[in-house]
Design a protein around this nucleic acid. Structure first.
Lengths: 197, 197
DNA sequence: CCTACCGATCGGTAGG
DNA sequence: CCTACCGATCGGTAGG
């Protein structure tokens, strides 16, 4: 166990916030996990809140990068939706603790950071609405689609996987993403023109 | 403000646990909401944990009732899936705080209640797997479907709505359920043979 | 259901 | 990064 830096502390915090929740994690819990005394954390960070801010910001920025990529990406709406699905699930899987903390503990951020995070996620969600509505216009998706509702449903489906998907299991992220994309585009019903991934 | 009984205390707890989280709610917070002193709660309940147990148990039992109904329900797989979708969303909407506490705070239950709750939800999930696999056999759903995965995805979609659906908004639960069912069966793609709800 | 109180733990600081 | 410590708050109890 060598000397710890701020990155180590934030990483450990993301693990504990994901597993015990922000309010269920004490600074002494966190310190013990790092092999430190509780008070030593304050040489790396000014408050407990700051740790949550850091974790949420990192996750936000990953989602934002994906949204920016898809905003300028060429291709059909189906291809761009597929990129959103794969990219989103990859973010969830790459750092599951950071993702879980982002999804479950953002609401405990102090203001104004909480508002900022919510605004960022709204902007992220717009990427989904843009892709869906362009797919409606191109005839790739149903023209009667409620785009706002559909974006919420797609994101609900993606974020919900975080509760049960295990990256070490038999199912790979790529397979999961393909299945999610198939379910979204084709649904459960049998269809001769399958495999649109 | 009249005298409070245990039901009042549990109901108030479900609201606070949903909004602040179990660990973010103190017994004094809860008491204040009821217009009581913190210590007065202990004439209704023996511990804070017991409140969480009560809330989770009530939610579990609602889901279980739905699963039992669908297990003995006649009809096609599509009709039974539709009942699961509508019933599940109705439970979420009928008592959103209880549902949120169930979904987010069950992990903080003490053992053995936590294990019991997890086992109950596994059993609930089996209703989804049964309906999906019977639909595969009947040809209503794709025969190559990974039933276990699909059940997880359906439940992720349903539970995710809890984060954003507002019963007081323009969209009714029935419309939401219909849209979810359409997305699940038909997907986003345009389909002449629509309206299978 | 309240007053009065318990030991334990909380986030955080001072000083080295 | 540690020792020593702060006031505040935690879940919970005794006794009425």
């Amino acid at each position: 166990m060598s000397r710890k830096n701020r990155t180590d502390v934030v990483a450990a915090a993301s693990v504990m916030f994901a597993e015990q929740g922000f309010h269920g994690t004490s600074m002494r819990d966190l310190a013990k996990k790092l092999g430190l005394m509780g008070s030593s954390l304050y040489s790396h960070v000014v408050s407990k809140d700051e740790l949550l801010v850091d974790v949420v910001r990192e996750a936000s920025s990953r989602f934002q990068t994906l949204a920016d990529e898809v905003a300028t990406m060429p291709g059909t709406a189906i291809q761009r939706l597929s990129r959103l699905v794969h990219g989103h699930l990859q973010i969830l899987v790459k750092d599951p603790h950071q993702a879980r903390t982002f999804l479950n503990e953002t609401r405990f951020l102090p203001e104004p950071e909480r508002d900022t995070a919510v605004a960022m996620f709204d902007r992220y969600q717009r990427a989904y609405r843009d892709v869906l509505s362009s797919g409606c216009n191109s005839g790739e998706f149903r023209s009667d689609l409620d785009v706002h509702l559909a974006a919420n449903l797609v994101l609900s489906l993606l974020n919900g996987t975080q509760r049960w998907f295990n990256a070490d299991g038999a199912l790979s992220v790529e397979s999961l993403a393909s299945e999610v994309h198939r379910l979204l585009t084709l649904g459960l019903n049998p269809d001769p023109e399958a495999n649109a991934a």
